[in-house]
């Protein structure tokens, strides 16, 4: 397993949602993903961070085909799957799975845990019942649940256990890449730690690659090898976690990191550079989309849209003035 092997390649991925008026006439586009490009290496945890509404979740769902991409390519295990619906690309996507923010909510409330865990295998494989059952039991042990839970319904087990079942459901197919959409949001810190440890041990056990979508920078810093920072539907900075956290190049990343409160550190409000709300994705500013809130903005930023520059070792940023 070479360190640099690319397992998932995203090229100029776009997802535009039409904005319609009351007569259903299209009056514009909501540009949620606008030329997103990055690649994921086998075995790594790539963090995707950004404010709410920057397109993190849409990115995850577009990769999965829940939303169909407007343009661009998603190359997974040698196949372009960007334009395919999940059931059309079933063969290719078997090893790419999406984990909901609350995996428990992804369980059909009217199905027993057993049926829910069998379903991925029924859909994707032709394994006979006994072999499916064996696989299900194996995975259930891996996520730390007793087999007695198989005959229960989702509402009969606790929220934390539901999350484990949700994870187990994804893992039955032995995926190679799992997209985790905010796996720790809305959890107590202690439960967060349990889930993170579980995710890490599952990664060891099954050789998984994670795409870790989160807005929690401290968690991202703790578990991700690389980080992509998104702003209004575009990756503005990507690189090794350490490089980005120690020397952020893009002014947006800089303000984002300044916003992490530290015990004994300066008050966040004193140093917080980011003001106001991001502009609406229906009416993006010309040139650099961050310029309306950027402390370094100059005339050039309004004219030219900066591209990702690989000017630093293990780090790329999309800013004209980043040094």
């Amino acid at each position: 397993m070479s360190a640099a092997e690319t397992i998932l390649e995203v090229e100029a991925l776009r997802k535009y949602f039409p904005v319609r008026n009351v007569w259903k006439r299209r009056i514009g586009w909501l540009r949620v993903l606008d030329d997103v490009s990055f690649s994921v290496r086998r075995g790594e945890i790539l963090g995707i961070v950004g404010e709410s509404g920057c397109g993190k979740s849409t990115l995850g769902k577009t990769l999965m085909g829940i939303h169909t991409a407007s343009a661009g390519r998603v190359i997974f295990e040698g196949h372009d799957i960007a334009q395919l619906k999940p059931h059309q690309s079933r063969r290719f996507r078997e090893h790419l799975q999406y984990c909901y923010q609350d995996p428990g909510a992804s369980l059909d409330p009217r199905w027993t845990i057993r049926s829910s865990l069998h379903e991925p295998l029924v859909v994707h494989t032709t394994l006979p019942e006994p072999e499916r059952e064996a696989r299900v039991r194996e995975i259930l042990r891996a996520v730390g649940l007793p087999e007695t839970h198989l005959d229960l319904y989702p509402h009969e087990i606790s929220g934390g256990q539901q999350r484990r079942v949700g994870l187990a459901r994804i893992l039955t197919l032995k995926p190679s890449v799992v997209i985790l959409d905010e796996p720790t949001s809305g959890l107590d810190v202690s439960v967060q730690a349990t889930i993170l440890n579980l995710l890490l041990s599952l990664r060891e056990q099954f050789g998984l690659t994670y795409l870790f979508i989160s807005h929690d920078l401290s968690v991202v810093r703790m578990i991700c090898q690389r980080v992509a920072v998104m702003y209004l539907g575009r990756v503005v900075e990507i690189g090794d976690t350490e490089a980005i956290f120690s020397a952020p190049r893009h002014p947006y990343t800089q303000s984002l990191l300044a916003a992490i409160p530290r015990i004994g550190g300066p008050r966040v409000t004193d140093s917080f550079a980011l003001e106001g709300e991001p502009p609406s994705p229906t009416a993006l500013p010309s040139g650099c989309r961050f310029r309306t809130r950027c402390p370094k903005a100059q005339k050039r930023c309004a004219d030219e849209d900066p591209v990702l520059r690989a000017d630093w070792e293990r780090q790329e940023a999309a800013c004209h003035f980043a040094t």
Partner: peptide, 24 residues
């Protein structure tokens, strides 16, 4: 989410309609 998850899992539209939506 559970219907969307079933779709993301690769269930065919017929399967989603008959086995997930209809019982609900």
């Amino acid at each position: 989410p559970f219907v969307e998850a079933a779709i993301a899992l690769g269930c065919s539209p017929l399967r989603v309609m008959v086995l997930h939506i209809l019982p609900s």
